[in-house]
């Protein structure tokens, strides 16, 4: 799934000024536990989370995750945006709950990992 479709489906807002054209989402993981995210060994995976801090971005960086969707109105800080942009990671914010976002994306073909 391309980022434009993803944003439209989740009623999201793109926060970062990172190139989005090359990103194609195949899998998603929904978690607030970063150690869980760090067990990933797939590519083209996005993270849906309610955890908005610098370690969310660091975790994505280490796990080769290039798209983070912050659910339920969680806001990214300027430091998070800066770190994300440095690492070609995009941040999307959405007012919808994590459960709803996960349901919509799953229903539209984004696959679960486990």
């Amino acid at each position: 799934m391309d980022i434009t479709t993803l944003i439209k489906l989740t009623n999201g807002k793109l926060i970062t000024n990172t190139k989005t054209e090359d990103i194609d989402i195949e899998f998603a993981m929904a978690s607030d536990l970063m150690s869980d995210v760090l067990t990933l060994d797939t590519v083209n995976t996005m993270l849906i989370t309610g955890l908005a801090n610098l370690q969310t971005i660091r975790t994505a960086e280490m796990s080769d995750v290039h798209c983070i969707l912050l659910a339920r109105n969680k806001k990214s800080t300027p430091e998070m945006i800066e770190l994300a942009e440095q690492n070609s990671i995009i941040i999307i914010e959405s007012a919808s709950a994590l459960f709803k976002i996960a349901g919509i994306l799953y229903g539209n073909g984004v696959k679960a990992l486990f």
């Binding site: 607030d32 970063m34 150690s35 975790t59």
Partner: peptide, 15 residues
């Protein structure tokens, strides 16, 4: 609160 501390770190490192 930072998203860690679930007791998975060392097991993850070992893996």
């Amino acid at each position: 609160q930072m998203g860690f501390g679930a007791g998975m770190g060392l097991a993850n490192i070992n893996k």
